[in-house]
Simulated scan of single mutants.
Amino acid sequence: MARDTGRGNPECDVRDLIKSNLALLTVSIASFILMGAGTALYGPALPVFARSFDIQIGTAGLLISAHWIGCSIGVAAMFVVGARATPQWVVALMTLGVGLMALGLGWPLTLLGAVLFGAGYGCATVVFNPRMLRAFGARGPAMLSLLNATFGIGAIGAPLVFVALGNDPVLSFAICAVIGVVITACAGPAGREASVTATASTMPFRLNLPMLVFGAVAISVEACLTGLGPTALIKAGLSETAAAQLLSAFFLAFLAARLCLMVVATWLPAFTLFTLALLGACASALIAALWSPGVGFVGLGFFAGMFFPTEYVTATRKMGDNPKVAPTIIGAGLVGGVFAPLIMSPFLGAMGPHGFFWVTACVTGALALAALANLRAMNS
C-alpha cells in the first residue's frame, strides 16, 4: 500500500511525515550542506589557484564554468537515468569531484574535479527537489524551502573555514571530501525512500519557455555572484580575507531569505516573490556600485536566495509534475550558470572597480521589468 504523504489531508501531522521520510530528509539536508560548502569555496579559492598554478584570474574563473558544465552534464544524464538515480551515487560523484580538487595536483585535474562535483550537484538537485515535494505532499513547498535553505549552512561556513585554514583551498576541499564520504556511507536507506516517492503519479509535461528564460537569467546572476563576487570585491579595494568573510555574510543573507520564504510563500504567489527578489537585487547592486560594495553584496545574497525556490515552484506549477519537468527547469538555469561566468570572467580584469556590480544591476533591472510585464500571466 502506498504511503500517505498528506497530499489529501492538509492537517496531516508534519511530525509523522518527517518520521516516515527521515532518511530521505536527513541525507537531502546533509547533501545540500555539502553542495553549499563546495560551491562557496570556488570564489575565495580563485585568486589562490591563480597564484598556485601561475594562471591569470580570468583563466581561474573557468573553474566556475567547469562546475556549471558538470551540472549540465549531470542534469542531462537525469533525462536518461531518471528514477534509477539514488542519493548514494550522486553524493559519491560530488565527493569524487571535491576529492580531486583537494589533491591540488595541477590545473587540469582541478578543472576535472569541478566538472565531477558539478555533475553530482546537478544530479542531486534533480534527485532531491522533486522527491521532497512529493514525499511531503501539502507540506512539500515549505520543506523545499527548508531544504534549499540548508544549502546556505555549508555556504556560510565554508569561507570561514577557508580563512581559518590560512586561505588553503586544498585543505578546505579535503574537508568537504571527508564529509562526502560520510554522507555516501549513510545514504543507502534514503535511496529506498526516494525510489518510493519517485514513482508517484505524474501530470502531463507542459513546456513554458518564458519561465525557463526567467530561470536561466536569474541563475546566471546567482552563479556570477557566488563565483565571481569575491574577485569583484577585491577589485573594489577589499582584501582577500574580507572578501571571503563577506561571502559568508552573503550566504547568511541567502539562508535568511530561504527561511523567510517558508512563511512569506503562504502570503504571496511565487512569481510575485520572484519579481520582488529581482527588484531587490537590482537595488542592492546599485548600492554596491555607488556606495558600499560589501553592504550591496550582502543584500544581493538575500535576494538571490529567493531566485531558485520561487522560480522552481512557479515553473513546476506551470509545467506539471512529469519526471522530465525537474531536469528541464534545472537545465534551463544551468544554461545561464554555464555561460554567464564564462562570458564575464575574461572581462572581469578589464572592468572598473565597480563594473561587475553595474552589470549585475542592469541585468536584474531588465529582468525585473520583464517579470512585471508577465506578472499576471505567471500567477494565473
Rank of each mutant, 00 (worst) to 15 (best):
A242V: 10
R376N: 11
I183T: 03
V90C: 12
P327F: 07
L103S: 12
G137C: 11
G305Y: 07
L369F: 04
V313S: 13
L348R: 01
A257P: 00
A249D: 06
N374M: 15
L62S: 12
A368Y: 05
E222G: 13
P10T: 01
M143R: 08
F297W: 06
P47A: 12
A142H: 05
G36T: 10
M306P: 09
G229C: 05
P210I: 11
P293V: 04
G166F: 01
P47R: 10
G70P: 00
V313I: 13
S248I: 00
F151W: 12
W107E: 03
C362A: 15
T26I: 14
D168P: 06
L278D: 05
M211H: 06
S20G: 12
A370L: 15
C260Y: 04
L25W: 10
L261V: 00
R84V: 03
A368H: 01
M101V: 11
L112C: 03
R3Q: 13
A265N: 14
A200R: 09
L276S: 09
A377G: 09
L348I: 14
P10K: 04
A23D: 11
G301Q: 06
A288H: 04
R206I: 00
A60C: 07
I179G: 14
I183E: 06
V90W: 10
G301E: 04
I183K: 01
W107H: 03
G166M: 00
T241C: 04
A40R: 05
L252M: 14
V126R: 04
V264K: 09
V98G: 10
I219S: 09
R131K: 06
G331T: 02
S65T: 14
L209S: 04
L252I: 00
H354L: 14
A289V: 02
L34D: 04
A23N: 12
P204G: 14
A50L: 08
L261C: 07
E240G: 12
M262L: 07
M306G: 12
S284H: 07
L228F: 07
P87D: 08
N9F: 11
A85L: 13
S201L: 15
A66K: 05
A102Q: 03
L133Y: 03
P169T: 05
Y121T: 07
T202P: 03
L209A: 15
I73S: 01
T197N: 01
G305H: 03
G113P: 08
G82K: 02
I33F: 02
A373T: 07
P230T: 00
A243E: 02
L300E: 15
M1L: 15
V14H: 02
E311L: 13
A190L: 14
V213C: 06
P44D: 08
A253W: 03
G152N: 08
W291L: 15
